[in-house]
Design a protein around this nucleic acid. Structure first.
Lengths: 205, 205, 205, 205
DNA sequence: TATGAATGAGTCTTCATTCAT
DNA sequence: TATGAATGAAGACTCATTCAT
């Protein structure tokens, strides 16, 4: 977006390639900077350290996704929980948004999701899971009110949140084409919605 | 089983602890061998190398699971695919078996599933997924015969296999108690079965 | 005095702070220039190099002291050596002058005396010691003439010169208040004078 | 003393030489290990890190001195404070002991006293000063009791303690011969004793 | 059976310095 | 007058691995 320095761009592009190939821990600043045609020292002109370089690759797309999710959830909560399973349009919108975001800078996301071991972004997926779990919890609580004698199944809630996130992670990880991704996610989302409806509440003992 | 050496046992126990804490890549043979009260050199008497040590920790429980799954699948295939969703007993058996196996040496499994980055066991989960995917495919093919105008949704099949495996990974990862694990897996399995039935086949175009 | 540049002043002020905190060797031009709101390159516009920057901080007060001592000594030498211990006024004057000079830019002096390791000002104290030692030697020679059968104790002379300088170094280093410094130095000076008289000459063998 | 490994001995000897020449901060493990005919990695087999190597050079003689001082002081405190200035024998013993200790491994002491900047032994002299200051304080308190209307001059006490330590530091630093050291310290000690007697107490206001 | 010693390549990082602009 | 970019050498340190004994 910004008309950045050219060498910096080269550096980050090479870093992206190396992180994608070797992962954060095994990536070598030496080989990254060599590929970018500069010395290791130069890297430290552009970034604070190895983690900073990693951040330069992944942070922007990450923030975009984080914000989009937060925003979506804040608006979504006012919806009618009874109609959870019928709000197809809403779920479709969410899925479309996620796919757009995920594929906008797919390599960066792949790195973030699969190659961040050792960096300060480890377990970033857990942050996504936490966000969606909180949201699901709120939704489920409103839902549970309508069913006396039922209560939220906490374990299922947690697992369900995991699976929901992983649905997108799996998508961006296994499906190269954004168009096909749009199509493939549908039955997955449907199955998730049905599962939510059928199993989120358990009998209160 | 084998009349093992005592020092070797100590070594492997300490390795298990270190791998669990730091993961394969960040684990240090120095600190492992120090904890086991021996020198780094000694490690190479017992194992070929770092990967070998990792294998000494995780391979036995891994093989047990691999065999159990293979065996289960070979017998399962003769079942009636029409009745997939009704074979509750069978699914329960499978889940019980898996839980038994997973919790028998839970630490080793945790390491294998979550801490193997950098070792030659990376992506071991993918091997599980492949196994189950082949099995699901065979099942689905028999099932598809009964529904002309329908065909297997390949992407869904793959994702479904992933989720099936992850159901167990998530369980062993998040649930300390084997008894609770037995209970928590139920709605998860139910949701999986329902999802299979509803979405494994898509309209043939 | 000079119509200095404002940025230069800021730079030197920040350098002073950093040198005081970390000492010459561990001070970083990067962090100094950053604190001064400029780039490292800019430092080299104002100074020749790191040592030059150090000099910009400490050299002026140093020169003032060097000159004052030289001047004091050249006038002092004409005094009557017999009366060394009685020239209280003279010693008081010297002490007062030193204290004024030392506290005029105390931070700079502290840096020079305690934080110059690694710079070309290391062992600057030795230069003070040499000056005072030469002076003490001259004084002692005139004094020795009056005591046949006695000669100057060279080692004592050297140590004594050290201690004399350190009396002031210790003062500026440990005593924040210039007024208290004026008071505290008195018994110290007295002890030095008495020591001089009693031990500077030893029996000639 | 211990029949140590030969390479380790070589390493420590080379380290001693390098520390003596360049000081802790500017000493290079690279050049030390090269001089000792081994790789940098080997250093870490023998020592924890650079500070550990420094410790291997200086810690033993340091501990010997620390203990000797502590022991001397604990016995000395029972002496008659009135007779402080007359206990020539005692002071002589102390001086002799210190000189023996200081010259037993003089290079190590020189390093410790003058070249420790940057290491975890910086300001080790202050520890000596503190020890002797506490002792001097205790002595002075007993002494002060005998002189109503007088009180301890705190600044003088502190400075005096510094000078006392520096008497030995200066000695080992400037005098190569242990025999001459024994002789040179005498007038210094005398001057210290006289100064103590004359100036440690000031008029109570 | 295991050790103690050592290697050597590699890690990230920091630094003073330079120089075209 | 000052910057931004980059250098290059060196820094301490860690590691898996080897091998004679």
């Amino acid at each position: 977006m910004e008309q950045e320095n050219e060498a910096r761009g080269r550096l980050i592009e090479c870093a992206k390639k190396e992180f994608l190939e070797k992962g954060f821990a095994k990536a070598s600043l030496r080989s990254i900077s060599a590929a970018a045609g500069m010395t290791t020292g130069a890297v430290y002109f552009f970034c604070k350290d190895k983690n900073g370089l990693f951040g330069a690759v992944v942070d922007e797309p990450l923030q975009r996704i984080l914000q989009a999710i937060a925003q979506h959830f804040s608006s979504d909560l006012h919806a009618d929980p009874v109609a959870f399973q019928h709000e197809t349009g809403d779920h479709d919108d969410f899925a479309d948004m996620m796919i757009s975001l995920l594929y906008a800078d797919r390599d960066a996301l792949l790195i973030l999701l699969e190659k961040s071991a050792g960096s300060c972004y480890v377990n970033i997926i857990d942050r996504f899971v936490e966000m969606i779990e909180q949201h699901n919890l709120a939704l489920a609580q409103k839902y549970a009110v309508l069913f006396p004698g039922k209560r939220i199944n906490q374990y299922f809630l947690h697992w369900f949140s995991h699976v929901s996130i992983n649905a997108f992670v799996h998508l961006v990880t296994h499906e190269d084409s954004r168009e096909r991704a749009r199509k493939e996610i549908k039955p997955v989302m449907d199955m998730l919605i049905e599962g939510w409806t059928a199993h989120m509440l358990e009998d209160d003992v």
